[in-house]
């Protein structure tokens, strides 16, 4: 329950912080960190333009996309405090319910019959598919290490073992940051600020959304960021007292947002055709974690 509130809180300023960082590094003053939130609220008040081609799928998809991310957030714990829902194997549910949302956003993009939106849909489907194995091997490795298979079990038990688990935590953070970048379609995989439809991934999928739906989609992006931030924070919270945990949580969210801002400021977007290979290679980092776990458990001998 507490994690839900914290993630909702973090989602309010996350994207604003990313934009603020980008502004500072490029020598601009930048908008306030609540500007993206204000944009969302403004969109909530607007009317909508629907394409003649679209049907009911296009209307429900943003809602389901939002609901799926919320369902995923429900299972994310906060240190020892379990999430709103917690059970054995909940990380499988986490990944799959996110995929449900993605399924709907892809078919809603195809529903417009556009010559651009299919492009984004195709890329989104491919890229997120390749990111998935990395996440599962990562979580599987930690399940092996801790002997638990729920988020909460894994995160609490991890810190009762060796210091080596923090090194694994660092690697896991790397994997999760990259997955978050892929899932949220950020640089270096996708440039959300590009003005050419041919080079977009996520943005081109939502070209035809407007008004409330667009607001919902944009807010979902903030939520997704905060959710991955919370996952990363959980690797470091462990069994520390709650006020420290709170500090770690917001510290991690803060650092995560600024890191994203810095990455976006100083890297260029990858070539679209190389993205898939790069994301797929993430699985090998996850495998590295798996071998690290095997070393810790002494299975190699």
């Amino acid at each position: 329950m507490i994690s839900l509130i914290l993630i909702l809180l973090a989602s309010l300023f996350f994207t604003g912080l990313v934009i603020w960082t980008k502004s500072i590094t490029s020598g601009r003053k930048g908008p306030g960190i609540f500007q993206p939130l204000k944009d969302v609220l403004r969109l909530f008040k607007k009317g909508a333009v629907y394409s003649k081609t679209t049907g009911i799928i296009f209307q429900v998809a943003p809602t389901i996309y939002f609901a799926s991310v919320m369902m995923a957030i429900f299972v994310v714990p906060f240190g020892q405090a379990r999430g709103f829902i917690s059970f054995e194997g909940d990380f499988v549910f986490f990944a799959y319910v996110l995929a449900t949302g993605k399924f709907f956003s892809i078919i809603s993009a195809l529903d417009t019959g556009s010559s651009f939106e299919g492009m984004g849909a195709s890329r989104e489907a491919l890229f997120s598919m390749f990111a998935e194995p990395a996440f599962f091997i990562l979580m599987g490795s930690f399940a092996l290490l801790t002997g638990h298979s729920s988020f909460q079990g894994i995160f609490t038990a991890m810190h009762f073992t060796t210091k080596f688990s923090y090194a694994l935590g660092a690697l896991a953070t790397f994997v999760l940051v990259i997955i978050a970048m892929v899932e949220n379609s950020r640089m270096p995989f996708d440039d959300p600020k590009t003005h050419l439809e041919l080079t977009m991934v996520h943005e081109v999928m939502i070209l035809d959304n407007s008004g409330f739906d667009l607001g919902l989609i944009l807010y979902t992006t903030n939520l997704k960021f905060a959710m991955y931030g919370a996952l990363i924070a959980n690797f470091f919270i462990g069994a520390i007292p709650w006020y420290l945990a709170l500090l770690v949580f917001f510290g991690v969210q803060f650092v995560f947002a600024i890191t994203i801002g810095l990455i976006e400021s100083f890297t260029a977007r990858f070539r679209m055709s190389h993205n898939a290979q790069y994301i797929f290679a993430l699985s090998s980092v996850s495998l590295l974690i798996f071998f690290g776990v095997l070393l810790v458990l002494g299975k190699f001998i």
Binding site: A48, I64, A67, F212
Partner: peptide, 26 residues
């Protein structure tokens, strides 16, 4: 949850102007 959100969405958007047009073609 999804139905509730959809219900709220419909309640809110019902009061807003809705226009139909061609798909965005750049």
């Amino acid at each position: 949850f999804a139905s509730a959100i959809y219900f709220i969405r419909n309640r809110i958007t019902a009061r807003r102007p809705v226009v139909t047009g061609p798909t965005w073609g750049c």
